[in-house]
């Protein structure tokens, strides 16, 4: 599974980067995003969900979050 590190990237650039990363993978594949606490973790997951992707998990690890997501249509 691919991991995309979006730590240190602010809103909304992190969301745009996540979208670009998703363009390179197939529908149904899963990918991991690393997100900073605060605004990034509040905004990016729900924006990606609104784009039609499936959120499989979101866990806090050492001050940042790991978002696991399955690419939707």
């Amino acid at each position: 599974m691919e991991t995309v590190d979006l730590r240190g990237v602010t809103c909304p650039t992190n969301f745009v980067k996540a979208k670009l990363a998703l363009e390179d993978i197939e529908v149904g594949e899963t990918v991991e995003f690393l997100l900073d606490d605060g605004e990034p973790v509040k905004n990016v997951p729900r924006s990606l969900k609104a784009d039609g992707h499936k959120l499989l998990g979101l866990k806090e690890t050492d001050g940042y979050y790991v978002l696991t997501l399955e690419k939707g249509e």
């Binding site: 973790v41 509040k42 997951p45 959120l55 499989l56 998990g57 979101l58 866990k59």
Partner: peptide, 10 residues
């Protein structure tokens, strides 16, 4: 719910 804890934090 996937138990991410964001709601409690927010």
């Amino acid at each position: 719910c996937i138990s991410c804890g964001l709601c409690a934090k927010s």
